[in-house]
Design a protein around this nucleic acid. Structure first.
Lengths: 196, 196
DNA sequence: TCGTTACTATAATGATCGGTATGAAATTTG
DNA sequence: CAAATTTCATACCGATCATTATAGTAACGA
């Protein structure tokens, strides 16, 4: 019994996600968040918990809603196609919305006060999980003969993630989609050839 | 006439630089800054101006004191050596100090409230100047025949900067020097060969 | 229609933010 | 020495931070 919630929790979280995406964790104030969500403060607390929990909800949603191309990419037949799909989907994501360029995760990962350390660690952990998935995919590729025996999956995964993170920074610095595509093209030029 | 300054302005700025390096602009409070500098608030204001000016001083000093390898790197005879020196010096810088890993510039560039927008723009501009220097060096290399006629200096410069920025992110995520060296090695594997 | 429930919105909490007024201490000038 | 001037440490400023207590109200079961 009792009154039902008036606002759409999903829509509110979507709006909040965009604010964190643009400003990071501490850069986003509750004034920003409530304005974007169209919902007052206590409603956010009752629906999501405190700011850290709210950010965690937004992070989950980011992976589920915007980084959903990663599972698809990992299923591509060759490691080169996997890498290419990761790169070009990331470029699209990093430049599609002028109000929040770059990557939600990377934006929040770098700077912050001591209070924000748990949040930074959360982002570091999630990032590492993504890289691990990619590394495992490359290990499979090596086992399948899609990558040469000399290939080092861990180094290759770290390398591609570096390019992805670098493009997230550059998107924040205002890079166009076209420039980032040239970066991706150059990155793929290094990809090891099949051993066959 | 009047009383002499008791604290060492240069040492104070060095200490402050490290705080901004670790926490970014807004993540560093005056409490953090005065503790690190061993100097009270009004002294910082009289010596450097407000927080934004203080950050600008720290940024200048960062380039002059820690990024001084860039002019040297640009003078290397071949573009490949230029790129290699930029990469390996950046790795050293990004991992040498456990208290402030990564890059001062990139750390402050991504996140921030609306109030911090001028600071972010400052960092974006400085970053762009660095990339422009590198691009001009690559154009010279192309003119000299050190790069093939098909090489695109702007894309190549953006690519290498992406790797550098990505490594700055990864250093913040705790990557070891060895892992970043593997990333650099992979990045250099893509470098265009001489046309001769 | 009534009592209960849980929402909404307002406003206030203590803490901390960047920035500064204040007066004592220190040094040069006369 | 005394006057003038600058730096120092302390304490305070209004604004804003995340968070929550309070009060009002809409929606439910009975």
């Amino acid at each position: 019994m009792g009154r039902h919630r008036e606002f759409d929790v999903e829509k509110a979280l979507d709006a909040i996600l965009c604010v964190f995406w643009s400003k990071g964790y501490e850069g986003a104030s509750y004034t920003d968040l409530t304005e974007a969500a169209g919902v007052e403060r206590p409603a956010l607390y009752s629906a999501f918990g405190n700011k850290e929990a709210l950010f965690a909800h937004a992070l989950d949603r980011y992976y589920e809603r915007y980084l959903n191309y990663i599972p698809d990419a990992l299923q591509k037949p060759t490691s080169r196609e996997v890498a290419a799909h990761m790169l070009y989907n990331a470029i699209d994501l990093n430049t599609r919305y002028p109000k929040h360029t770059g990557c939600f995760n990377i934006t929040g990962l770098l700077a912050g006060s001591n209070d924000a350390e748990p949040v930074r660690q959360m982002l570091i952990d999630v990032r590492a999980r993504g890289e691990a998935l990619f590394r495992e995919r490359l290990e499979r590729a090596k086992a399948e003969g899609d990558l040469p025996e000399t290939a080092k999956p861990d180094a290759l995964a770290a390398y591609l993630m570096a390019v992805l993170h670098g493009m997230a920074v550059q998107a924040k610095a205002g890079f166009s989609r076209e420039t980032l595509e040239a970066v991706a093209e150059q990155a793929l030029a290094t990809w090891p050839a099949k051993s066959s």
